[in-house]
Every structure is written in C-alpha cells, then in structure tokens.
Write a protein that binds this DNA or RNA. Structure first.
Lengths: 347, 347
DNA sequence: TTGAAAGCGCTACCAG
DNA sequence: CTGGTAGCGCTTTCAA
C-alpha cells in the first residue's frame, strides 16, 4: 500500500497553508472558488482520499455515530422481531440525522464492557429489561447521553417506555369479554437469573424487570376486577422463544386442563402457545383464547391469526434515537400508548 | 461537565511517566503489579474514565469496527428477512472477534457517501445486487478491505456468493417433477432502474444484477431441458415485497390463466404469490405449484407451507465478516451451496 | 481570505 | 520494567 497522502502534502503542492486546504474540504465557503478548485485538483492528482476520519474525530470530538446496546442478550438484536422493528426505527432516525449506527456486539458481558469502551460514538441507546447491570454501569461511566428503552435507568438522559400496565389490562379485559374465566399468564423473564417454569407467589413478588412487573400488574388488575382471584391464575415464566413456550403450554395444559384463556407477554411467546394448545388438542379460540403482546407482523399468518396488544416499536426506536442524538429538548420521559388488536385467536 | 481528566494527569499524580500509565491500562503485563495498582487507584480517585477512544484510534490506526453497507436500499437492512439473517451472522462473527458493527445509514445515495467517509471502521462489508454504483466507488476510495456479498465487485478483497444457477435449476426441476408445465417466473429487480411488471426478451437480455442473471439462467436451463420454450414462460419483475407480488400474480393469472408453476426468486415474493394465487381462486399445490428461494422461517407458517431453495444466510454473513476482518488468509471467493426444501406448496 | 502554529489524547519507540 | 518524547492528521484559533 502506498504511503498515505496527508492534507499537508496537498496544501504544499497547491501552494496554500494547511488551514486553507482543510477549509477547502470542510468549509468550502471560506475559500475563494479559484483556490478551492486548485486544491481539489491537486488532491485528486496526488491521490488524497479526503480528511482522515479518526484524526478529525479526535480534533472535533464528534464521532458521528450512535451506539446501540442490548445488554440482556447481545445476539437478541437480530433474533427478536420486536428488536428488529426497534432497530428499523433507530436506523431511520440515524439516517435522518446523517449519523451512523454502531451495534455493540460481544459474546459475554465482560467483552461487552470492552466493546463499549472501544466504541467511538456520541451517545448510547440501550434496550433492556433490567437496570442493574455491569454493562449499563460501563455505559454510564462514559458520561455520554444515554437513552433507555423499556426500562428506567437512574441518571439516563431520557427514557422511552410503553404504558405496559394499561396494555396488559386491556388484554386481560378483552379475554374476559370473550368469555374466558380460567387464566394462565405466560410471563417474560422476570429477573436477571433465568428461572423458567411455574412462578409461585414469592417469585411473582420479586420481579425486577419493569416490563414484567407492569404487565403483570395490568393483567391482575383486570382479572381482579372481574372477580378472579390471583391465586387461581397459573403463572409461568417463559423464554422468549416460540418453541419454548409451546412446550411450556403443553405441560401446563396437562396440569391445568381447564385453562381457557392465555395471556402472553409477547407475541413470540403467544405464537408458541398457539402451537402448544393445538398440539394438546384444543381448538382456538373455541376451547382457549390466546392474546399476545406487541402486534408483530408474524401474528397475521398464524393459525388462527393472533390477537394482541399493538405497540409501535419502530416509532419507539426512532423516538429514542431522536432523544439520544438531540439537544435534550424538553420532555425526556416518553410513555407510548398501545392498542387492542383483535384477530382470530380471541373470536 | 467537569474538565476531562487525561492520562497525563493520572501519570503525574501517580508519579510515573505517561508511557507507564498508558501501559497500566493497555498492557498490564508490562507494569509491575504494585505500580499498576497505584496508577489505577489514582485514576479512580481523579475520575479518569480510561483511554480516550478517538485518540487511541488515531494513534493505533485501528477502529475496532466493521462497516456494513446495503447500497441498493439503505433501509432494506431491517426490512428483509434475508438481510436480517445476514446481519445476525455478521454480528456473530463481530462478537467473536471483539469488533463492533457499524451500520452505514443514510436517506439517499449522496448522503450515503458522506456516511461512508465519516465511518471509523477497519473494513467494509457490502451486500448488493448491482456493482456499478457511486456508493461502491466511495467505499473503494477508502482503500480498506472490502468484501461483497451476492455480487462481484472488481478489486474486492473477497466475495461471498451463492451458487444461484444451481439453486434455481433445482427449483425449476422440482416443479417439473411435480408435474407443472406452464411456468411463470417472478424475478427480483433486474437492473438499477426500477421497472416492475412483465419482462420482454429485450429486458431479459439486459439484466445487470448478478443474482437475477444467474437464477434466470438456472430456471431456463432446467425448463429448456424439459422441452419448454423460453418464449412460453411468463416473466415478471417484482419488488421484493409480498403485497406487491400478490398483486402482480393476480393480474398475471388473469392474463395467463393456465399457469401451473410459479418460480419466485425470493420467499418474500413467493409468499405474496401464494396470497395472489389463493385470491384468484387457485388451490395450491393442486392448481398451481409455487417454489420460492431463500428458505426463510416465515415460509413454515404460510398456507400452505412454502417450498423453497434453502440458503444459509447467517453463515453467509458470518463468513463475509470473517473474510473482511481476517488477514485475507487463502481463498477469497466463496460460493455457497443451496438445497431443496420441499413443503406443502409443491406437493 | 489566507497563513502559522497549537494542540486534541494517546501509544510506541528508544534509551536507560 | 520505566521514563521521555515524537507524532498520528486534522481543525481551529489568532494574526496578518
């Protein structure tokens, strides 16, 4: 590889100072047209590739990139449909603001901390369920704007969450309206430690993930209002994977054959629930009604199509990116609304 | 915000030279344990946040990130299931090599060029169909390793493509084996210019996108061998969107009601074809057989489940990332194989 | 408008 | 093992 041509070389060859040459590239208005064109011409002749990115970064202190981190599970970003929608929204806003998008990737938490420390970015976006986390501390140590999605983090520059309580309440109320009386709740992971399977009262009381806590609260509120005792509800903690929830549901229906309403905290879980219920010989929605949460596109093509609580994940991502990149203008705590999406699995 | 603490401040306060302080962070083995611990202690007291990323980059010349570009359509990355699988593979390899992943984002080609010039990365990965492209020129101007996926680019450090010809041949042969005789080919976009709708012979001769050219060749080879004249095949160029291909197929079946085999160049297109055929009153696979290309997960849940040519997009992405980040070891032109995936839409 | 020169903060080298 | 120091390539004052 030939030796790199530097701005100074161009300046000398063009007979101008380095400062003027710099302006020819970065602030064309400040250089007389004639001079500017000569500089660009000389640059081309010398094979100058334009200002060195890292040098400019160091000088200006701007990275021109937004860091995106998924601390709970770093490969999750490209596996979960909801995370992908989020990324689509983030990408859209980044494009609008002419900023690149840095996905922080790592195989384990320790490596993630290094990855964060090595990332040349101007701000961070974090999607996670938990808030006590070495990864998050590492981000905060960088002392750059940090916006978190779906959880509250102390000291964050902004927060974008859903009105999860209201959404869950809506879901449960809908199943009640459809005539369900014996409920199972399929929960997302509730704590840092993986502990899948039936949840007893103690575990339900120790939920640390905000999303799970809120949605559980919403479900319970609606069911209680309908005269259903919390103790009569079956609670199961699932991995956010259809194949896993399908198994869980098969087992569950063996132990609790009278269940006629399933409240799933994600559509991915709900889709597995449809499979599990069908495999257990149930007709949906006649024998069991199922409602998910998120409103992902895949829910249109399940058998039967999945009812859900719709959220706008794309907009959630876009908004978060806007907050992270923005000049912290005004309201930094956004709560987005959800809506009921009725499809075949509940009617 | 408080004034930034620099490494020199730490060094002074700890009574060591800047070089030693640097080593305490970056090359701990070179510093006596006792000294190192004092340095780290002092750093903590002073609130030093660790080496400045951009400064280190400038000094070492390493960015610790891989740039990923989708020149054909910059929002495409998070919309197309195949692109997402690709990203998952790229992300996996980046994680393995402890490198972050920079998604180049932009709203238009001009802005994309700026985005590329502003990206602090060590190598580029490009997924595209066309090879003549201002965006690609901009990447090449950076003079960094460039690996391209699904197309050949002159001067690339590496290339990962599919054996598209063989895959397409397999698809067409399968439909023939299933008894189809009157074919329609639903093509991906064939050229830079969008020109959706029926393709005449002239347009078929002017296909610039490698993937389309190869797959078309494969389809034709198998059909010709079965005694079917190319002129009797209906060719339609589709946008890679199910809703679009569904419309196209409805129209097509009105004009060519006897079609009994559909060869789609992507599963996304094929899924729309299923919808369109069903809307036109056809039974699948009895009246029409449909086979896609890619083998995406969504194909399992369509009605009926979609037959396809399976490719391993995750591995494709991973391999490309490995080549881009690697020391250019050995074979830089990989051709991946495909396999036939028979499901309900062809039996 | 243009030129000269001062760093941005760090790592790598070389000498001890 | 440690210290001193050059310089990565650029942008941005400040003066002319």
């Amino acid at each position: 590889m030939a030796e790199r041509v530097r701005l100074l070389d161009v300046a000398k060859a063009a007979g101008v100072s380095q400062g003027t040459a710099s302006n020819a590239f970065g602030k064309p208005d400040l250089v007389r047209k004639e001079v500017r064109e000569r500089i660009l011409e000389v640059a081309r002749e010398l094979g100058y590739r334009g200002p060195h990115v890292m040098a400019r970064m160091l000088r200006t202190g701007k990275a021109g990139a937004l860091g995106v981190v998924f601390p709970d599970n770093l490969e999750y970003a490209f596996s979960d449909p909801v995370a992908i929608e989020l990324l689509r929204g983030v990408g859209r806003e980044c494009a609008r603001q002419a900023v690149n998008m840095m996905i922080i990737s790592a195989e384990n938490p320790e490596q993630a901390i290094t990855a964060i420390n090595n990332a040349a970015v101007d701000a961070f976006l974090v999607h996670c369920y938990s808030d006590d986390n070495d990864i998050i501390s590492a981000i905060q140590r960088r002392n750059q704007p940090l916006v978190c999605i779906d959880t509250d983090i102390a000291g964050a520059a902004g927060t974008v969450v859903l009105d999860d309580f209201a959404g869950a309440e809506m879901a449960a109320q809908h199943l009640i309206d459809c005539g369900a009386r014996r409920f199972a709740i399929l929960s997302l992971q509730a704590n840092k430690a993986e502990n899948f399977g039936p949840m007893n009262a103690k575990r339900r009381g120790a939920v640390s993930h905000r999303v799970v806590r809120e949605r559980l609260g919403g479900y319970h509120a609606a069911l209680k209002k309908a005269g259903i005792a919390i103790e009569d509800i079956v609670h199961i903690e699932c991995e956010n994977m259809s194949s896993h929830s399908a198994e869980m549901v098969e087992t569950m229906l063996r132990d609790h054959p009278k269940i006629d309403g399933i409240l799933a905290m994600s559509d991915v879980i709900a889709i597995g629930a449809l499979d599990g219920a069908r495999a257990s010989g149930r007709k949906i929605p006649d024998d069991i009604k199922v409602i998910g949460f998120d409103g992902i596109a895949e829910g249109e093509r399940t058998d039967p199509p999945l009812s859900s609580i719709r959220q706008d994940s794309v907009e959630k991502g876009r908004l978060a990116a806007e907050m992270a990149l923005g000049e912290t203008q005004g309201d930094n705590n956004r709560v987005l609304e959800t809506s009921l999406l009725v499809r075949g699995s509940t009617r």
